[in-house]
């Protein structure tokens, strides 16, 4: 029991258990079609969440990821759409728009990072403000209308491209966190920013970089979400923030900084996606879905914190 509880892969084990319980009860759950659905559903969420985890590890929080997703979605669509886009009809429209979206995302993240480090205000307040600002800007740019008629080359990213992007992002993030100096600095900054500063860690630069990564990955997720809806939307992703945070926390990332891994995050995202998928396939009444989801997330978080207590029990 203790071994299982303190396992670093507790969440993965929970997800597997959840699947094992649900599969026989729900027709269609264990089919290959549904499994591919499940993986497919979790990929863009995994990309945003990994970005958020970078910020969480550094001891911050980025509330503006969903607004960045929306703003990137509409700016990309404004560039490439077939009716009014600046590059309408140009064969390079899709790749240019994708690069542009990534650039916008990284830039917005960079702004977040600068604001957090320069204004010396809590990240929560700063990114809450930028969330409203970015979100409002996206709505203003489009007058709250959706933009369709995106190039087929772009919409095509929704298939195989999604898998490629997610795998590349996960591997790169894993290597960065585990094996790079930047990764060590991220954890150090999150565990104790003052000690890190005294020890010569460039705390400000590390923080700005973490927010930039978060912005960049939010933009990457925006590409995937936009492509699969074939629409640039100013409210894209508005409701996924709680899923992002839930997946990160269930995956073992600490909201107090200094803790979190890519593997854990993927397990957390899988868990959230599995939860959505099974509640959906069960045909649970609308009114119960949110309650059920809340309960399950709470239980997972409780288990995780219990595991941390067992691990962290003081020797003296």
């Amino acid at each position: 029991m203790r071994g299982l509880l303190t396992s670093r892969y507790l969440v993965a084990v929970l997800a597997a258990a959840c699947f094992a319980v649900c599969a026989p009860l729900i027709p269609g759950m264990a089919t290959s079609g549904n499994l591919s659905n499940l993986v497919w559903n979790m990929l863009p969420l995994a990309v945003v969440t990994i970005g958020e985890v970078f910020v969480l590890i550094a001891g911050g929080i980025d509330l503006s990821v969903t607004a960045i997703i929306a703003l990137c979605s509409v700016t990309g669509a404004l560039v490439m759409n077939g009716r009014t886009g600046y590059l309408a009809g140009n064969p390079a429209a899709a790749p240019v728009a994708v690069l542009f979206m990534l650039l916008v995302g990284a830039l917005l993240g960079f702004l977040n990072g600068c604001a957090v480090t320069r204004l010396r205000m809590p990240a929560f307040i700063v990114t809450l403000t930028t969330m409203m600002f970015f979100g409002g800007f996206a709505v203003w740019l489009t007058r709250s209308a959706n933009i369709d008629a995106l190039p087929p080359a772009f919409n095509g990213l929704a298939g195989f491209g999604t898998l490629t992007v997610a795998v590349v992002v996960a591997l790169a993030a894993h290597r960065t966190l585990r094996h790079s100096i930047f990764g060590r600095w991220l954890y150090a900054t999150g565990m104790n920013a003052r000690a890190s500063l005294v020890s010569g860690v460039p705390v400000h630069a590390v923080t700005i970089a973490a927010y930039s990564v978060s912005g960049l990955l939010a933009a990457a997720a925006s590409v995937l979400y936009t492509a699969r809806l074939e629409t640039g939307s100013p409210v894209l992703g508005q409701r996924i923030f709680l899923d992002v945070i839930a997946a990160a926390v269930i995956g073992g990332t600490s909201l107090f900084g200094g803790r979190g891994t890519v593997a854990g995050t993927l397990a957390g995202v899988l868990f959230v996606a599995l939860l959505d998928n099974s509640l959906n396939l069960l045909g649970v009444s609308f009114f119960l879905v949110f309650t059920a989801k809340g309960v399950v997330i709470l239980v997972a978080a409780l288990l995780d914190s219990a595991a941390q207590r067992v691990l962290g029990e003081a020797v003296e």
Partner: peptide
């Protein structure tokens, strides 16, 4: 402002 309390000895020495 001296140590990363949750980290191990090696991670602290490498700071």
């Amino acid at each position: 402002d001296g140590l990363l309390m949750p980290a191990g000895v090696l991670a602290n020495l490498a700071l």
